[in-house]
């Protein structure tokens, strides 16, 4: 087992009688993109801010590069890059000035010009912060987190407020950064972002870790039900529904048949072998499907399975804290 580069154990943080982080533990290995996923107010940001030594934990330990950042936050700052949620620069500082300024704080900084190039900011080097677009600000924010040549970078909600194209190019960028050897701790409330980028992740809800693993592993670990949606020609659809209802009643691998939205579509849910039962039954009745597709499970289904409720990324703090206490 590789020595973890970031380690959080039984972290707890309260504000008055509000529990922001109840009990969070995870370990990040060198070179990973590790996700902290959960709805707003779940305790993700508090977790990483405590990790970065910006907040005092009420309980538990946090270690970065083997150093307890609660006791000795100064010792890791040269090697830990942090991108906080909100923009934090003077309106009139230019992109180039900001990067050179932050580079001056570090022992062994990256070349600001190379970073500008990596983050597609070279054409904007002379532009003042207030005039940057949302995507450009995010890229600058990432550049500032990386300018110290960190071994670990914390990126908090880096695609919030970006349009789809800017989100996708930011994702590419994160992968490029990881390719340079930086371990990345990615905080996000976007399921698709976590699924696309993370090697491993924890799902946090109400201040607790409710699931942990690789995105694929978490999805595969869901109960073994599969759903197949079959579309028929309009004239075949009523007969097909009858055949499938009858199949569900007699075949152990077929559990139920539901409407799938359109009148010509039927959703067949059963065991992992549901497709094997479905195809011979359709062949026997000479029902030729227009289209057959399996319904893909996602991290949203994982969230539903572990918390018992639909994933709502905007779920407010109060509600989540309430959940943490009960």
């Amino acid at each position: 087992m590789v020595q973890p580069i970031v380690e959080v154990r039984n972290l707890r943080k309260t504000y008055g009688d509000k529990v922001a982080v109840d009990d969070v533990s995870f370990a990040v290995e060198p070179g990973e993109i590790f996700g902290i996923l959960g709805p707003n107010g779940a305790g993700k940001t508090t977790t990483v801010e405590t990790l970065a030594g910006l907040r005092h934990a009420d309980g538990g330990t946090v270690r970065v590069l083997g150093i307890d950042t609660q006791r000795n936050p100064g010792a890791v700052r040269d090697h830990l890059g942090v991108q906080l949620q909100e923009a934090a620069l003077h309106d009139k500082i230019t992109v180039g000035e900001a990067l050179r300024l932050f580079a001056a704080f570090y022992d062994d900084p990256a070349d600001p010009d190379e970073l500008l190039e990596l983050l597609d900011l070279t054409p904007h080097a002379g532009v003042q912060f207030a005039r940057l677009s949302g995507g450009q600000r995010q890229r600058l924010s990432i550049a500032l987190a990386l300018v110290g040549n960190p071994r670990v970078a914390i990126l908090d909600e880096l695609t919030t407020g970006l349009d789809p194209q800017a989100r996708r190019s930011t994702w590419d960028l994160v992968e490029r950064v990881r390719a340079t050897g930086v371990t990345i701790l990615l905080v996000t409330h976007f399921m698709d972002e976590a699924e696309r980028l993370c090697d491993r992740l924890v799902v946090i809800d109400g201040g607790r870790v409710v699931a942990e693993g690789t995105p694929a592993g978490l999805i595969d670990g869901l109960e073994s039900e599969r759903t197949v949606v079959v579309r028929f020609a309009a004239e075949d659809a009523p007969r097909a529904r009858g055949v499938l209802d009858e199949l569900a009643a007699r075949h152990p691998d077929v559990l139920r048949v539901d409407d799938a939205g359109a009148a010509t579509e039927v959703a067949v849910t059963g065991s992992r072998r549901v497709l094997f039962a479905l195809v011979p039954a359709l062949a026997e009745a000479d029902l030729v499907p227009e289209d057959v597709r399996t319904v893909t499970k996602s991290l949203e289904d994982v969230f539903l399975a572990v918390t018992g409720r639909q994933y709502d990324p905007q779920a407010g703090d109060a509600q989540q804290l309430e959940g943490a206490r009960s």
Partner: peptide, 17 residues
């Protein structure tokens, strides 16, 4: 990008670099 970074030491907690 990072392989040459020295191991962090506990010596410095504040800096005016």
């Amino acid at each position: 990008m990072t392989t040459t970074a020295p191991a962090p030491t506990a010596a410095r907690t504040g800096s005016w670099r």
